[in-house]
Amino acid sequence: MDGSLIFLMVLSLVLGAACWIWFLWGVKRGEFDDIERPKHRMLDDDDENDENGGRGSGT
């Protein structure tokens, strides 16, 4: 009983550590540098028609 509990506690620590490393990776990549923009990005609606929109590039 003790053994399985300790195993589970270690497992949760490992899972937590994995998340932590993921977070460190994000900080190093600059994912948290701009916290304003991402929430607007999902509202950009042109990504599905990029193919036809991308052709013309000027007057």
């Binding site: 052709r55 013309g56 007057t59």
Partner: peptide, 11 residues
């Protein structure tokens, strides 16, 4: 305006 609409970005 022409540049923006020409690039398909008029939204």
């Amino acid at each position: 305006y022409l540049l923006i609409t020409g690039a398909g970005l008029d939204s």
